Simulated scan of single mutants.
Amino acid sequence: MRTENENETGAGAEAGAVDENVPVRFDTKIAVLLREDLESWQRLNVTAFLVSGLGTVSPEVIGEPYTDADDTAYLPMFRQPVLVFEGTKEMLTAAHGRALSRSLPRTVFTSDLFHTGNDRDNRAAIRAVGKDQLDLVGIAIYGQRNAVDKVLKGARMHP
């Protein structure tokens, strides 16, 4: 966790710092933007689905595997925090357009996906609708911190 005096300048993790006393800082950001009218279970489900795609095209977001004191192995996870935001339907549409214009790695979740039950049907539901007509309930993006901040303009941190 960062202290209020730390910022994400790119020193630390990106530079491969080994000094454990130096704060880890990132010049990149992983962010999820959820539509504000989702139920709690939907927010959790959408967030899990959205972030699952980011490591597949941006492997640098994945850290090293974990082990506990008994040498039990665990899978690697994101190397940096995932920030979750919320906004209106219009805000999601605008953020989606800005993410596309900046060619940022992104995932989308539409309202149609609440009615499917598998990856094949999920992909078909997205494929059936043009990008400007998607009924977005969530997007996840990854990229340089400043670019992600511009995409999320007006969004507020999820409570």
Rank of each mutant, 00 (worst) to 15 (best):
M1D: 10
E8C: 02
T9Y: 05
G16A: 15
G16E: 15
V18Q: 15
D19P: 07
E20H: 11
E20L: 12
V22M: 14
V22I: 15
P23Q: 13
F26K: 04
D27H: 06
A31K: 04
V32S: 04
L38Y: 09
E39V: 08
S40C: 08
S40N: 06
S40Y: 09
W41D: 04
Q42V: 00
R43S: 03
R43T: 00
N45D: 11
N45T: 10
V46Q: 02
A48K: 07
F49R: 12
V57T: 15
S58Y: 14
V61Y: 12
I62K: 12
D70S: 08
T72S: 00
T72D: 00
T72Q: 01
T72H: 02
Y74M: 00
L75G: 00
V82D: 08
E86S: 07
G87R: 05
M91C: 14
T93H: 11
T93G: 12
A94E: 09
A94I: 05
A99C: 07
S101D: 12
S101L: 07
S103Q: 12
L104W: 01
T107M: 08
T107Q: 08
T107D: 06
F109E: 01
F109A: 03
S111G: 04
T116L: 04
T116F: 02
G117M: 02
N118P: 01
D121Q: 05
N122D: 07
R123E: 09
A124Q: 13
I126P: 01
A128V: 08
G130M: 13
L136P: 08
L136R: 06
I139E: 06
R145H: 03
G154T: 10
G154K: 11
R156F: 03
H158L: 13
